[in-house]
Amino acid sequence: MPRTHFSPSITTRPVYPGLTSQGATPAILLADGAGAEAILDLAAQDRSVMDRAHLMFIPAGTDFGPRLAALNPRMYREAPSFAACLERFRKALADAHMGTQLYLAGTEGLIGQATAEALAAGLPADAIQSEHRGHIARRMQCVHCKGMTENVTTDPFVCSHCGLTLFVRDHFSRRLGAFQGVCVDAETPGLIPPVQEIKP
């Protein structure tokens, strides 16, 4: 799957410029699904990225695992979900020193959450690189009940926690690693615009 190109939008929407090798500095790499291809491309660009790399991969139904392992990073681990790999990711950040690079690749939900974790751990924003690959479903926070709904592909959508019908805003919270959804029929209860598929 090639790199996703998003249409320009309001300025709080994140941009994912793509992965560029910073050489053989200590690195943490985290990818899900088709994000594996961005890691393979990165390694093809500069093999030395793997010299001191800790690579974590969430297959999400794909079979890139063996090819990533064959890149021979210093450490390679797979996990079934971001939640399952969070403790490992946090430990890697806690043990990291200044100079460590973080490479994130895959879906917006993964990149957003991992970026928020890394910033909270003190990693400077300019040490984080990201590349979007795979589906463009969004991780949405309901601004009313604060619940998170994963993999939202339509606008509006129904909050999986409080059941309100939410308008999908382009406004992104870096702290939460999620977009924000606002009740679409607050002024006109029941008047819900036609459901559309979210476009890149």
Binding site: H97, M98, G99, T100
Partner: peptide, 9 residues
Amino acid sequence: VLGGQPLGT
């Protein structure tokens, strides 16, 4: 001095 400083330094 700069080697081994924790994240956020």
